[in-house]
Amino acid sequence: MRDEILIEAKNIKKHFPIKTGWFEEKKYVKAVNGISFHIKKGETLGLVGESGCGKSTTGRLLNGLIQVDSGSIIFNGKDLANASKQEWKKYRQKMQMVFQDPYASLSPRMKIKDILREPLDIHFKNMSSREKDKRVEDLLDKCGISRFHLNKYPHEFSGGQRQRIGIARALILQPELIIADEPVSALDVSIQSQILNLMKDLQEEYNLTYLFISHDLSVVEHISDRVGVMYFGDLVEMGTKEEIFNNPQHDYTKTLLSSIPQMIPKARRKQLT
């Protein structure tokens, strides 16, 4: 693994206002409360935490789907805070998202072929139609979906297959960073491992960098190189997978780890309440 940093978040903050009456004090939800981290090229950073702790918001901030209130995001050495629309479009090509719910993230009225061509249509206006088709077919093969299914609609696929399509869509622009927001939590456990292995294989093949957001510690343990633990908008602990799982420092991490169901109860980790 190289040590080059691909993306860095410096003290990023996002507070969402809660609507209150005219004369009441304004209140905010501190979704992301000044966190800093970086991801090196080719590694997988797992982001864990309970629901509502701001991990999905962090993913969306990195991708620019929502704007940061303060702090900066540096991608490939360039600060994205002041990037123009055109520049954002260019960055989007290099960082793609895989969403949690494969049932909702694919347009229900488009064929698989068109869903996968869409990113190419947006970013490569000059590419020939045949070349686009070829790229779509090749990638679909790699993601384990037969090219016979190109003319089908999303509702004709199972959840696992749809997530494969979602991954193929994210990869078709040949990005460097994939932000995967709970990509397997909507799937059956047996399918989860297939998708995780697919993601690992693709990472090796394309030298991808992942930000893997999940609440499921076993999943994160399986795929990550380093792990960050989030708690109420703060990044409370960060370290290599081994450090976090074998020698957690923060109390919250310890509680979190103790909640993983064990094959043999009380075998490895002490149960905390």
Binding site: N63, L65, W88, K89, R92, Q93, Q96, M97, F99, D101, A104, S105, L106, S107, P108, E118, P119, I122, H123, G166, R169, L173
Partner: peptide, 17 residues
Amino acid sequence: EMLFVEAEESLGASRLR
């Protein structure tokens, strides 16, 4: 508010598109 619209946005599609 549907997720696939957000997905399109993350792909870099313009608002008009």
